[in-house]
Structures are given as C-alpha cells and as structure tokens.
Design a protein around this nucleic acid. Structure first.
Length: 903
RNA sequence: GGACGAGUAGCUCAGUUGGUUAGAGCACCUGCCUUACAAGCAGGGGGUCGGCAGUUCGAGUCUGUUCUCGUCCACCA
C-alpha cells in the first residue's frame, strides 16, 4: 500500500512509474499466446533525422490509447517501435551536421574522425563539404541516427507510450535489410519487378530517380517566351514556352486537331529557331487552343506530358539535360540531333553546354533575342512545377536504368485490397482509392544514393569490359543481408570485381519506402519465423497520418498483396495534423515547429496526452497550450477526488473491516487471508461494494456509470478515443461537483449505518471505475492512485494498465425506483446554491424554508434523496413544504427558498 | 478542373438515428478560504448553428445550390 501524498508531484510520480513499468515488463508481448488473443499495432517508424516536434507526440499518443484500451480488454498487445533511419533525410542531415559528402570512388579511411561542422543552409555554396568514402559516409549516418533514436526513445518513455521495446527495429539494421532484400527477391521470382532504361523523374540536386509518390507540385515564378518557328515550305508561327533552354531538344510541334490556325500545317515540318532542326507538326488533343498560342513544342523532356508523347511516337530522343542538371554534350551534325545548319547549331549549343538549366535558360534567351527569334519580352507567370518533395530543383526527366515494381497493371487488385480494410474515419478511404486510380507510373524503387538497402544482385562484365544488365546474378535468401558492393557475386572472387570477365555489384539502394512498406513483415519475422509471423500478421491496426496514405499505406498494401495475397492489417486509423495558431501545418521547413519536451516537463505527460486525446480521428488540431492547462487541472482534480474517496475508505477501516459478516466471500466461504493484509482489506472493499449499495441516490449514480462505461466502450471499439474521453471527463466533473457533494455528509457519519456503508461503497466502486476509464488517457495519475489502495501488491498484475477494462456487468445493481431521482436531486441542490449565491451568502448559510412545487411523481422521486440534498445544501434545518403543481418548461420543480436571517 | 473535409458563443471544440428553451472548456462578470481540491467552489451574461432555397408537424442534424477555408489529385506548352 502506497501512502497518499498531500500534493501531487507529477515529475516524481511520472518518473517513478515509467521506471516501474519497464521493470515489470507490463507492455511485453507474450509470444506463447494465440493470434486470437493478440492485438497488433503496425506503428509508424518515425524518421529519426527529422525534427522532433509536438505533432509526433500527438499522433503517437493516439496509438497508445488504442494499445492501452485493448490491453485492458485482456488482449496480448504487440506494440513495436521502429526507427526509419535509412534514406535521404538522414543523408542530408549527415551532410549538414558533419559537413561531409559521399564520393563512392574514394577508399575507406578507418582513421577518419567525424567532426561536427554544421552547414549554414543559406551559405551552403561557400562551405566546402569534405568528400568521404561510401563506408565512411554510412558510418556517419549510423552514428547520427543512434543519437537521434536515443532522443526519441527518451521522449516516448516520458510520454508513457506502452511500447514493447523488445519489438523495436531500425530500418537500416541487419534484420530490416534482410527482409527488404528478401521481399525484392520474392518479387523477382513472382515477376513483379523489372529493370528498364526509361525517362524517369530525376532530382538533379540529389542525383537520384524518384517515384511518383514523392513528387509534389510547387507554385513557382516562370516566364513565357514567345519563339518564332518557320514552317518548311513557307509560313511561320509562334510558340510560347517556359523552357526555351530545351529548344535544342525539340522533337515535334503539336496543336489541337481542331485548331483552324494550325490545321494547314499538319503533316508539314517546322524548323526550330537557332538549331535549325526539322521537326514534324502534328495534331494532338494534348494541346489546348486557349493556352499560350495554342501550339507547343515537344521536347525530350520538359515534363511528363512530353515523356508520354515521346513514348507513343516514333520520334527520336534528344536528351540535353544530364544527371547533374547540366546541359550535356551533343552534336548537331549527327542523329538524333541532325540540324540543317550543324555548324551554326553547334556554335549556339556550345554556349549552353555545361551550364545548369537555369543558366542555360538565361543564355539562350540572350541568343534568341540577338537572332530575332524571341518576339517581345518574356512575360512573367506563376505556374506549378513538379519537385521531389525533399528537393530544391525542379524534377527533370532523364533516361536512366532503374528498377520498377509493376503496379500499373494491378490497380484493380490493389484497389480491391484497399477496400477490404476498414478506414477510420471512413472518408479517408477515398484518398487511397483516388490515388490508386490516378497512378501513372510503375513504382521506381532504385535510388542512386548510399544510406539505404542495397539491391541484392550483381551484373556480369563481359570480355570487353561492358556490363551486361540483362541477366543479373541474384543473391540467394541465405546470403541476406548482403552488400554487393563489398561482397563478391557467388562464384566470383573479390579480385574479379569490375574487370573484364568479372562482375560488378548493383550500385544503387532501394527507395526507403521499399523497406518501410514491409513494417508488418519486419515485426512479424516474415521469412524467418513462420510461427511468429502468423501470430502477428496480418496486423490489427495501422495508425498513421493522412499525408502518407499515398506512400506508406499504399505501398504496404501493395507488398502484402504481392507477397501473400492478403491485406496487411484490418484497420487503418488516421490522425490529423497539428496546426500552428495561423492554421498552417506544423513543419520543420516552415519553421513553426514546437519541441515537445518543455511541455511534458511543465504540464506533465498526462496533461499533454490529454490534449492529444481530445482530437477526433483525422481532424487537424490547433496547437494551444490552454489545453495543457486543462489537462493538468484534470490530473489535479483526479488526485484530489481520489484522496477524498480513499480518505473515506480509510476512516471506516476501524469498523467496516472488523465486521464479522465481511469475513466471508459471496458464497459464504470464509476469506482465508491475513486479516491485516492489503489483500484482505481489498477483498472486504469488494464485498462492501457488492452488497452494501442500497441507497436510491447511490444506485442512480451506478446507473449513470453503467451508461458511461457502455458508451465509452462503444467509442473505443470504433477507435474513437476522443468521444470516450469527452464522455468520461464530463461524467467525472459531474461526479465531483454533484454526487460527491450530495453524499459527503452521509459518508461522514460516525456510526456504521446502511446509508453510510452505501455511500462509502459507492464512492469506492465509482472511483475504481473512473480510474480505469481514464487509464488509457492519463496512465500516470491513474496508476499513482491505483497503487494507493486498488493494487494489493506490486508487479505486472497489479498495475491499473493490466487490470480489466470496466464492464457494465461489474456495476450491475438494481435500478433506482425513479429514473429521474438523480436529476431531481441535482436540480434542487442547484437551486439552493443559486439562492445563496444570488444573495451573496456563503454556501453554508442556513436556510429557513424551502417550498418545492412539482408533479407528484417527481416529488416522490426526490423524496429518496431529499435528506442528502438538504445536507449538501446546508439546509438540514429548513422547513420543507412540498406542493403538487404543474410546472412549465424543462425543469422538474419550481422552488422558493428563504434564507435564514443570520448564520 | 476533380475529389474529400471543415464552417456552431470572443477563442478552442462537442452535438449520436431530425424532436420540446443548441452544450463544454477557456476568456469575461459576481460571490465564496465549505475539514478532497483557491492549480479550488458556487452562480451569471453571451450563439439561432456560413448564405439562400427546399423536404417535414418539426432541421445545427436531411436535399439542392452558393460562399469561405483546408487538404489531396489533375493540369503544368
């Protein structure tokens, strides 16, 4: 039995319980229990190199509420935590923190000492980054992610997340790399992946291909340039373009088939200005007569529409922009660039070659102006341009060799799986349906980066030293995880790397989502431990936020379908965003993020959790510290109310626990425990609550509680924790303000009377119920109070968090005679209080007389609680006159109160 | 351009299947140190539910339309 402190120190208490919970292992998944008793959460692995902000605390609390509720239902909870540390965000952070850059050509330097040399983003160009080898770079990534993971783990502990840390993983660790590579090999076997050399969305800043899911639109300033084109055999027209630097990559000119202005030209050729290339003029519905001049040039490649057009056409590929975002080397005297005036074309292009896109644009505008082919001055416009979500330059389309997963021809199957999953809230389902419907490309999974999961394969190098990409050597599952850059292909020696007749490892790594899409399989031990896998997969719940439906949720559904023809989880639960006071999403890049730790320290973890718990599913929430205040108030109130209830229990020990009939259980068997022990006392309290609640008002309170329990349970079953909290919280304040006040005096009685017993027993049972209803939301304060009298010893079984969720059945007592009793009592008490407040008298001021008018039915209902009301209203000496009368309006009674003249 | 969501008291939000006088917290005003709680208690003022039209005996709740905000997708010459 813990002593009840006088003041609640959440700092002390929260630290104490966090420690004990770890010690007791109350959150550990029990691998021996069957799937049917298990509840599995596919928790999102946070990107550890991202900044830690209050939004994390928000959404992770939501999962924890679900976990804690299910645990109290008796479920065996598997609640893992992963760290998403592989991928570009980490690389970028490492570059910025250590001021280094990966050069795969360099050899490993075992003596390289990492130094923190923060790069000022605004002056990045001026700070020289030190080039290091690939292994050195990966070491730096590992070092930094370890630190970041520690910060997250500490925060999660303080927040009270009921994670089973035995199930923790990091997406770059051996196990995850293995699962990820296994997945790739399985997809190879199933024919779901292919390799192709295609124009692919390319981020020139990071030098890597990116997938459709990672593209975002940005509104940027651009300029329309009007260029004059000649028509072969006479005539000319004007094209408006925002990308004049691609003029040399023009392969065709198109206008709408119905556009009368250009109809005469269809079938003829145009001659491009400056480059004097002959390109066909063709009809295409892609052209919008309303836009620009209605006629446009197709270049390889200005945008995805160009790619589309080129693919379907028989036209040549004129690639200008290279992987580095610079204008590459081309020759206009040869195909596919052939010019009518190669010398002139090459002279023009010579001035562009080697320039970045932006510089080339400025240069060619100059040249066009000189040649007179630029009509008027460029006109500024705002237009949307595709970017890699983490990139700073517009995406280009560059033809490169990449690996793709076939999703375009499987839209229907994927959609079907998405529909088998329950989405909470339901309307979020159409986000994914919409996304699947709009897919345009297969999933490009290769990235020309370093800190990721390598492709488990090698290529043969022929006798001429040419790499043969057509017949890769795949690793076998027993070799995983493997790095083909450091290990030789099977059947080869390390010396044969890169030499004619030898091999080379695939240099790329996989898209981070290729691994993250396997979080269920990573946790379940897919491919490693079949028994465990079937106990954890498919999972019960995927909690996540809505901006990654198109990535994480989508890809996970794809993988589960491809590998095992199943859904990965039964439910998806979507959290909203945290908005700043201006209602903008809190994001590091916007500079409006708030660090959570100070709030946990200032207001308590319970208070912060309370704030998070109030948000309905899928609904964005404005960050407002007033709600932390409210949470802290609630915690204090729980503490104080509990002190009162337990004080009443304790004050009664002297007679209640010595009562003879309580030495027997409900079947009449004597209770065989040490009479001084806590267990004995606990059993007696239970007996008391079972058999001594007899007063009508007390029965009415339990009827209310039964309703709250039923409704809160219903909400929780639908993952609507916010609704449950609102209900429980509202009831709790009423319990304090009305019920406790009404029975206080009765519970104070010195003698052992049925009324007193009933009051104490009800307070006990109500508190026991309320604490458990609050436990998922406020794990610390509820555990603290629980430990005072409700836990009979220490350890896993005695935590409130492993106690059973309250049920209607355990509160089953007779209904009070009159269902309106409780409301009648509260109403009369309110009127007495009102009279005193209006008269500006203290609440203990005596009352001379009370005239209560109401229906016979209500007056009778009130009768059972009248004594409690009069005591609570300090009106026990008042003359009470009851009159049967018709009352207008919503109230039960009309009351006239005369206060005493003096105290 | 398409889709989804939101618009309820000064602020932040609840309002279950349409039902009598629309709720809570914060803020504001008044009073009260009542032996769980002044990080408290009691009382009070304040909204006609974005606009319009309709269905209905009756609509914040259903239908249509419209405005504003947010998000996603598409367009991207």
């Amino acid at each position: 039995m813990q002593d009840m402190p006088k003041k609640y120190s959440f700092t002390e208490s929260e630290a104490k319980w966090a420690e004990k919970w770890s010690e007791w292992g109350i959150y550990n998944w029990d691998s021996s229990r069957p799937r049917s008793e298990t509840f599995v959460i596919d928790s999102p692995p946070p990107t550890v190199s991202g900044s830690l902000h209050i939004g994390h605390v928000f959404s992770y609390t939501h999962q924890d509420l679900i976990a804690r509720y299910q645990r109290m239902l008796g479920k065996n909870i598997a609640y893992p935590m992963g760290w998403d540390d592989n991928g570009l965000p980490t690389e970028r952070r490492v570059q910025n923190v250590f001021g280094i850059k990966c050069n795969p050509a360099l050899p490993y330097d075992p003596d390289y000492k990492l130094e923190r040399r923060p790069v000022d983003n605004k002056k990045k160009a001026q700070v020289a980054q030190v080039e290091v080898s690939r292994p050195n770079f990966i070491e730096a990534c590992n070092t930094l992610t370890k630190e970041d993971e520690k910060a997250f783990e500490d925060l999660w502990h303080q927040l009270g997340l009921s994670v089973d840390w035995n199930l923790a993983y990091a997406t770059i660790n051996d196990h995850c790399r293995k699962v990820s590579q296994l997945s790739f090999l399985d997809l190879v076997k199933k024919g779901k992946v292919y390799q192709a050399e295609l124009p692919t969305a390319w981020d020139t800043g990071f030098g890597t291909a990116v997938a459709q899911a990672e593209m975002v639109d940005k509104d940027v300033d651009g300029r329309f340039h009007d260029l004059r084109f000649q028509v072969e055999g006479g005539g000319e027209f004007t094209i408006s373009t925002t990308r004049p630097e691609l003029l040399g990559a023009c392969i065709a000119v198109v206008a709408h088939p119905d556009d009368e202005r250009y109809k005469p030209y269809f079938g003829k050729n145009a001659i491009t200005p400056l480059f004097k290339a002959v390109v066909p003029i063709r009809p295409s519905t892609h052209a919008d007569p309303e836009k620009g001049t209605g006629i446009l040039m197709v270049c390889t490649f200005g945008d995805s529409a160009d790619v589309e057009y080129w693919r379907k056409s028989d036209l040549p590929l004129r690639q200008l922009i290279g992987r580095d975002g610079k204008m590459g080397h081309v020759d206009y005297s040869k195909e596919p660039f052939q010019s009518l005036d190669p010398q002139e074309a090459n002279a023009v292009y010579g001035q562009l070659e080697g320039l970045f896109v932006k510089q080339a644009r400025a240069k060619i505008v100059e040249l066009l102006r000189e040649s007179g082919d630029l009509l008027g001055e460029p006109r500024p416009i705002k237009h949307a341009v595709k970017y890699y979500e983490k990139g700073e330059f517009p995406l280009e389309f560059v033809t490169t060799r990449q690996w793709f997963i076939r999703i375009l021809d499987a839209k229907e199957e994927i959609l079907e799986k998405a529909r088998q999953i329950k989405w909470h809230p339901e309307f979020m389902r159409n986000r994914i349906e919409h996304w699947i419907d709009g897919l345009q490309y297969d999933w490009c999974i290769s990235r020309q980066r370093f800190f990721g999961v390598p492709f488990p394969l090698w290529y043969r190098v022929d006798e001429k030293g040419q790499i043969d990409y057509n017949d890769p050597i795949y690793a076998t599952p027993d070799m995983l995880p493997i790095d083909p850059q450091s290990q030789p292909a099977p059947g080869y020696t390390p010396e044969q790397r890169g030499v004619p007749g030898g091999f080379v490892g695939d240099p790329d790594v996989m898209d981070t989502w290729a691994t993250s899409s396997l979080t269920p399989q990573i946790v379940s031990g897919w491919g490693e431990d079949e028994d465990k896998h079937h106990k954890l997969f498919p999972m019960d719940v995927r909690p996540q936020s809505h901006e990654i439906i198109r990535t994480w949720a989508f890809y996970t559904i794809v993988k589960a379908w491809m590998h095992e023809d199943t859904i990965p989880w039964k439910n998806v639960v979507i959290s909203g965003w945290i908005l700043d006071p201006d209602r903008k999403k809190m994001e590091k890049s916007k500079g409006n993020v708030v660090t959570p730790k100070p709030f946990l320290d200032e207001y308590s973890a319970d208070a912060v959790r309370y704030w998070a718990s109030r948000a309905r599913l899928g609904t964005d929430t404005v960050f407002d510290t007033k709600l932390f205040d409210l949470g802290r108030k609630l915690v204090t109130k729980l503490f104080n109310a509990s002190r009162f209830v337990i004080g009443q229990l304790d004050s009664d020990e002297k007679f209640i626990y010595s009562l003879e009939e309580l030495n027997f259980d409900s079947l009449g068997r004597s209770i065989e425990v040490d009479p001084c022990s806590e267990l004995f006392k606990a059993k007696k309290r239970e007996r008391l609550a079972k058999e001594n609640i007899t007063e009508a008002l007390d029965l009415a309170l339990l009827a209310r509680l039964r309703y709250i329990v039923a409704e809160a349970t219903k909400s929780f079953n639908e993952f609507e924790y916010a609704g449950a909290l609102q209900l429980v919280e509202g009831d709790f304040w009423n319990f304090c303000d009305d019920y406790v006040e009404l029975v206080k005096r009765r519970s104070y009685e010195e003698k052992d009377t049925p009324g007193k017993r009933s009051a104490v027993a009800t307070l006990y049972l109500a508190l026991k119920t309320i604490l458990r209803l609050f436990a998922p939301f406020l794990p610390y304060i509820t555990e603290e109070v629980w430990s005072w009298r409700f836990a009979t010893s220490e350890g896993r079984e005695c935590s409130i968090h492993t106690s059973p969720w309250p049920t209607v059945a355990e509160l089953d007592r007779p209904e009070p005679k009159h269902t309106e009793l409780y409301d009648c009592a509260v109403e009369l008490l309110g009127k007495i209080r009102q009279a005193k407040t209006k008269a500006q008298k203290k609440l203990r001021w005596p009352v001379k007389s009370i005239v209560i008018k109401g229906s016979a039915e209500y007056l009778e209902a009130l009768e059972d609680a009248l004594q409690d009301v009069l005591l609570a209203g300090s009106a026990e000496d008042a003359q009470v006159i009851k009159e049967v009368a018709q009352i207008e309006g919503n109230e039960h009674f009309e009351v006239e109160i005369e206060l005493a003249d003096n105290e």
